[in-house]
Protein backbone atom coordinates (compact mmCIF):
# COMPACT_ATOMS: atom_id res chain seq x y z
CA UNK A 1 0.00 0.00 0.00
CA UNK A 2 2.71 2.46 0.99
CA UNK A 3 4.76 1.68 -2.15
CA UNK A 4 1.63 2.37 -4.26
CA UNK A 5 1.25 5.85 -2.79
CA UNK A 6 4.88 6.82 -3.27
CA UNK A 7 4.70 5.67 -6.90
CA UNK A 8 1.73 7.94 -7.63
CA UNK A 9 3.41 10.84 -5.82
CA UNK A 10 6.54 10.69 -8.00
CA UNK A 11 4.40 10.08 -11.08
CA UNK A 12 2.36 13.27 -10.70
CA UNK A 13 4.96 15.60 -9.22
CA UNK A 14 7.56 15.80 -11.99
CA UNK A 15 7.64 19.58 -11.87
CA UNK A 16 6.98 20.17 -8.18
CA UNK A 17 10.63 20.20 -7.15
CA UNK A 18 12.97 17.79 -5.47
CA UNK A 19 14.00 16.12 -8.69
CA UNK A 20 15.31 16.90 -12.15
CA UNK A 21 12.27 16.89 -14.46
CA UNK A 22 14.36 15.99 -17.53
CA UNK A 23 16.73 13.78 -15.52
CA UNK A 24 19.74 15.68 -16.88
CA UNK A 25 22.26 17.95 -15.22
CA UNK A 26 21.89 21.72 -15.32
CA UNK A 27 24.91 22.09 -17.61
CA UNK A 28 23.74 19.53 -20.14
CA UNK A 29 20.29 21.10 -20.37
CA UNK A 30 21.89 24.51 -20.94
CA UNK A 31 24.12 23.01 -23.65
CA UNK A 32 21.04 21.63 -25.41
CA UNK A 33 19.31 25.01 -25.25
CA UNK A 34 22.44 26.75 -26.57
CA UNK A 35 22.59 24.24 -29.43
CA UNK A 36 18.92 24.94 -30.22
CA UNK A 37 19.70 28.67 -30.51
CA UNK A 38 22.79 27.94 -32.59
CA UNK A 39 20.69 25.71 -34.83
CA UNK A 40 18.39 28.71 -35.41
CA UNK A 41 21.42 30.84 -36.38
CA UNK A 42 22.68 28.30 -38.88
CA UNK A 43 19.15 27.78 -40.21
CA UNK A 44 18.86 31.50 -40.86
CA UNK A 45 22.14 31.49 -42.79
CA UNK A 46 21.22 28.41 -44.84
CA UNK A 47 17.66 29.58 -45.50
CA UNK A 48 19.01 33.00 -46.51
CA UNK A 49 21.29 31.14 -48.90
CA UNK A 50 18.25 29.23 -50.19
CA UNK A 51 16.33 32.46 -50.83
CA UNK A 52 19.21 34.03 -52.78
CA UNK A 53 19.77 30.77 -54.64
CA UNK A 54 16.08 30.63 -55.62
CA UNK A 55 16.31 34.19 -56.94
CA UNK A 56 18.75 33.03 -59.65
CA UNK A 57 18.08 30.48 -62.39
CA UNK A 58 19.50 27.00 -61.77
CA UNK A 59 22.80 26.11 -63.50
CA UNK A 60 22.31 24.88 -67.04
CA UNK A 61 23.40 21.33 -67.79
CA UNK A 62 26.56 21.17 -69.88
CA UNK A 63 26.18 19.97 -73.45
CA UNK A 64 29.41 18.03 -73.10
CA UNK A 65 29.81 16.54 -69.62
CA UNK A 66 33.31 16.70 -68.15
CA UNK A 67 34.22 13.24 -66.90
CA UNK A 68 35.75 12.95 -63.42
CA UNK A 69 39.53 12.29 -63.50
CA UNK A 70 39.85 14.03 -66.88
CA UNK A 71 42.47 16.70 -67.50
CA UNK A 72 41.86 20.07 -65.88
CA UNK A 73 43.58 22.81 -67.85
CA UNK A 74 44.89 26.00 -66.24
CA UNK A 75 42.39 28.17 -68.14
CA UNK A 76 39.42 26.01 -67.06
CA UNK A 77 37.56 28.99 -65.58
CA UNK A 78 37.98 31.05 -68.79
CA UNK A 79 36.71 28.08 -70.82
CA UNK A 80 33.66 27.75 -68.60
CA UNK A 81 32.99 31.49 -68.90
CA UNK A 82 33.23 31.23 -72.70
CA UNK A 83 30.70 28.42 -73.02
CA UNK A 84 28.42 30.18 -70.52
CA UNK A 85 28.70 27.65 -67.68
CA UNK A 86 29.99 30.47 -65.43
CA UNK A 87 27.85 33.55 -65.86
CA UNK A 88 26.54 36.33 -63.64
CA UNK A 89 23.05 35.48 -64.89
CA UNK A 90 22.74 32.09 -63.21
CA UNK A 91 24.08 30.11 -60.26
CA UNK A 92 27.23 28.03 -60.99
CA UNK A 93 27.22 24.25 -60.86
CA UNK A 94 29.17 23.14 -57.73
CA UNK A 95 30.97 20.30 -59.54
CA UNK A 96 32.67 22.85 -61.83
CA UNK A 97 33.74 25.09 -58.94
CA UNK A 98 34.85 22.61 -56.27
CA UNK A 99 36.87 20.24 -58.46
CA UNK A 100 40.38 20.50 -57.01
CA UNK A 101 42.26 18.11 -54.76
CA UNK A 102 45.56 18.79 -52.96
CA UNK A 103 48.65 17.33 -54.68
CA UNK A 104 46.57 16.36 -57.74
CA UNK A 105 46.91 19.51 -59.77
CA UNK A 106 45.37 19.38 -63.23
CA UNK A 107 42.88 16.57 -62.52
CA UNK A 108 39.13 17.20 -62.57
CA UNK A 109 37.92 15.68 -59.26
CA UNK A 110 34.50 17.19 -58.55
CA UNK A 111 33.36 17.10 -54.90
CA UNK A 112 36.03 14.58 -53.88
CA UNK A 113 37.77 16.97 -51.49
CA UNK A 114 34.58 18.01 -49.64
CA UNK A 115 33.59 14.36 -49.38
CA UNK A 116 36.94 13.72 -47.69
CA UNK A 117 36.23 16.64 -45.32
CA UNK A 118 32.82 15.12 -44.53
CA UNK A 119 34.44 11.80 -43.66
CA UNK A 120 37.08 13.50 -41.49
CA UNK A 121 34.33 15.19 -39.47
CA UNK A 122 32.25 11.98 -39.17
CA UNK A 123 35.31 10.07 -37.92
CA UNK A 124 36.18 12.74 -35.38
CA UNK A 125 32.56 12.56 -34.17
CA UNK A 126 33.01 8.81 -33.69
CA UNK A 127 36.20 9.24 -31.64
CA UNK A 128 34.31 11.82 -29.57
CA UNK A 129 31.50 9.33 -28.72
CA UNK A 130 34.16 6.76 -27.93
CA UNK A 131 35.71 9.26 -25.47
CA UNK A 132 32.27 9.81 -23.89
CA UNK A 133 31.76 6.04 -23.63
CA UNK A 134 35.20 5.62 -22.03
CA UNK A 135 34.24 8.39 -19.58
CA UNK A 136 31.16 6.39 -18.53
CA UNK A 137 33.54 3.56 -17.63
CA UNK A 138 35.86 6.03 -15.80
CA UNK A 139 38.68 4.94 -18.12
CA UNK A 140 41.01 7.94 -17.86
CA UNK A 141 43.59 6.64 -20.35
CA UNK A 142 41.06 5.86 -23.11
CA UNK A 143 39.34 9.25 -22.67
CA UNK A 144 42.71 10.91 -23.26
CA UNK A 145 43.49 8.81 -26.34
CA UNK A 146 40.10 9.35 -27.99
CA UNK A 147 40.07 13.08 -27.17
CA UNK A 148 43.49 13.32 -28.81
CA UNK A 149 42.16 11.68 -32.01
CA UNK A 150 39.15 14.01 -31.94
CA UNK A 151 41.44 17.04 -31.76
CA UNK A 152 43.51 15.66 -34.65
CA UNK A 153 40.32 15.21 -36.72
CA UNK A 154 39.24 18.77 -35.98
CA UNK A 155 42.64 20.17 -36.94
CA UNK A 156 42.64 18.07 -40.14
CA UNK A 157 39.24 19.49 -41.06
CA UNK A 158 40.42 23.06 -40.41
CA UNK A 159 43.50 22.41 -42.55
CA UNK A 160 41.32 21.15 -45.39
CA UNK A 161 39.10 24.19 -45.13
CA UNK A 162 42.11 26.53 -45.15
CA UNK A 163 43.32 24.80 -48.33
CA UNK A 164 39.90 25.09 -49.97
CA UNK A 165 39.58 28.77 -49.07
CA UNK A 166 43.09 29.42 -50.43
CA UNK A 167 42.17 27.67 -53.68
CA UNK A 168 38.92 29.63 -53.92
CA UNK A 169 40.62 32.98 -53.21
CA UNK A 170 43.51 32.24 -55.61
CA UNK A 171 40.96 31.68 -58.37
CA UNK A 172 39.69 35.21 -57.78
CA UNK A 173 36.78 34.82 -55.37
CA UNK A 174 36.17 37.69 -52.94
CA UNK A 175 33.16 38.84 -50.96
CA UNK A 176 32.28 41.23 -53.79
CA UNK A 177 33.28 39.39 -56.92
CA UNK A 178 33.99 35.89 -58.21
CA UNK A 179 34.62 34.37 -61.64
CA UNK A 180 32.04 31.59 -61.19
CA UNK A 181 28.75 33.45 -61.13
CA UNK A 182 26.75 35.97 -59.09
CA UNK A 183 28.68 37.85 -56.38
CA UNK A 184 26.31 36.33 -53.80
CA UNK A 185 27.72 32.89 -54.53
CA UNK A 186 31.20 33.47 -53.08
CA UNK A 187 29.94 35.90 -50.42
CA UNK A 188 27.56 33.27 -49.03
CA UNK A 189 30.20 30.57 -49.36
CA UNK A 190 32.67 32.57 -47.25
CA UNK A 191 29.99 33.57 -44.76
CA UNK A 192 28.49 30.13 -44.13
CA UNK A 193 31.60 27.94 -44.32
CA UNK A 194 33.49 30.61 -42.37
CA UNK A 195 30.87 30.65 -39.62
CA UNK A 196 30.92 26.85 -39.52
CA UNK A 197 34.74 26.79 -39.59
CA UNK A 198 34.86 29.16 -36.65
CA UNK A 199 32.58 26.76 -34.77
CA UNK A 200 35.00 23.93 -35.58
CA UNK A 201 37.88 26.09 -34.35
CA UNK A 202 36.07 26.84 -31.06
CA UNK A 203 35.27 23.12 -30.77
CA UNK A 204 38.95 22.23 -31.15
CA UNK A 205 39.85 24.75 -28.42
CA UNK A 206 37.19 23.23 -26.08
CA UNK A 207 38.41 19.73 -26.93
CA UNK A 208 42.00 20.67 -26.06
CA UNK A 209 40.84 22.07 -22.70
CA UNK A 210 38.90 18.86 -21.95
CA UNK A 211 41.85 16.74 -23.10
CA UNK A 212 44.26 18.55 -20.77
CA UNK A 213 41.83 18.36 -17.83
CA UNK A 214 41.15 14.65 -18.44
CA UNK A 215 44.86 13.87 -18.66
CA UNK A 216 45.55 15.79 -15.45
CA UNK A 217 42.93 13.64 -13.71
CA UNK A 218 40.53 16.47 -12.91
CA UNK A 219 37.44 14.49 -13.94
CA UNK A 220 38.64 11.34 -12.20
CA UNK A 221 38.90 13.34 -8.97
CA UNK A 222 35.46 14.83 -9.65
CA UNK A 223 33.99 11.34 -9.99
CA UNK A 224 32.39 11.79 -13.40
CA UNK A 225 33.30 12.72 -16.98
CA UNK A 226 30.24 14.84 -17.74
CA UNK A 227 32.29 17.68 -19.21
CA UNK A 228 33.35 15.30 -21.99
CA UNK A 229 29.66 14.66 -22.75
CA UNK A 230 28.78 18.36 -22.82
CA UNK A 231 31.62 19.32 -25.14
CA UNK A 232 30.80 16.15 -27.13
CA UNK A 233 27.27 17.50 -27.72
CA UNK A 234 28.77 20.68 -29.18
CA UNK A 235 31.20 18.71 -31.36
CA UNK A 236 28.43 16.52 -32.79
CA UNK A 237 26.39 19.61 -33.49
CA UNK A 238 29.26 20.99 -35.59
CA UNK A 239 29.23 17.70 -37.53
CA UNK A 240 25.44 17.95 -37.90
CA UNK A 241 25.69 21.46 -39.36
CA UNK A 242 28.35 20.29 -41.82
CA UNK A 243 25.95 17.61 -43.10
CA UNK A 244 23.60 20.41 -44.17
CA UNK A 245 26.34 22.74 -45.44
CA UNK A 246 27.56 19.81 -47.56
CA UNK A 247 24.04 19.13 -48.86
CA UNK A 248 23.12 22.72 -49.68
CA UNK A 249 26.44 24.12 -50.90
CA UNK A 250 27.94 21.17 -52.72
CA UNK A 251 25.18 18.75 -53.72
CA UNK A 252 22.24 20.97 -54.63
Amino acid sequence: MSTDTSATVTETKTWSGGRSPFNVSYGKLMMWIFLLSDAFTFSSLLIGYGAVRFSYPAPEALVEKIAPMSHLSDDFIEQMQEIGAFSEKHWPSPELVFNHFPFLHGVHLPLMFVSLMTFILIFSSVTMVLAVEAGHRMDKKKVGIYMFYTILGGLAFLGCQAWEWTQFITEGATLEHNPFGPAHFAALFFMVTGFHGFHVFSGVVFNIMIYVNARRGMYEKRGHYEMVEKVGLYWHFVDLVWVFVFTFFYLI
Binding site: P21, W32, I47, G48, G50, A51
Partner: peptide, 25 residues
Protein backbone atom coordinates in the same frame (compact mmCIF):
# COMPACT_ATOMS: atom_id res chain seq x y z
CA UNK B 1 10.16 15.68 -22.55
CA UNK B 2 13.70 16.92 -23.16
CA UNK B 3 13.75 15.66 -26.75
CA UNK B 4 10.43 17.42 -27.44
CA UNK B 5 11.63 20.69 -25.84
CA UNK B 6 14.57 20.80 -28.23
CA UNK B 7 13.09 19.36 -31.43
CA UNK B 8 9.59 20.91 -31.50
CA UNK B 9 10.79 24.57 -31.38
CA UNK B 10 13.28 23.79 -34.11
CA UNK B 11 10.45 22.69 -36.42
CA UNK B 12 9.43 26.37 -36.54
CA UNK B 13 12.23 26.97 -39.06
CA UNK B 14 10.11 25.07 -41.60
CA UNK B 15 7.93 28.18 -41.72
CA UNK B 16 10.99 30.31 -42.52
CA UNK B 17 12.05 27.79 -45.18
CA UNK B 18 8.67 27.97 -46.91
CA UNK B 19 8.45 31.77 -46.63
CA UNK B 20 11.94 32.67 -47.80
CA UNK B 21 12.09 30.15 -50.65
CA UNK B 22 8.76 31.50 -51.90
CA UNK B 23 10.19 35.02 -51.60
CA UNK B 24 13.38 34.04 -53.46
CA UNK B 25 11.31 32.61 -56.27
Amino acid sequence: DLAACIIVPFLLVLGLVAGLLYEGN
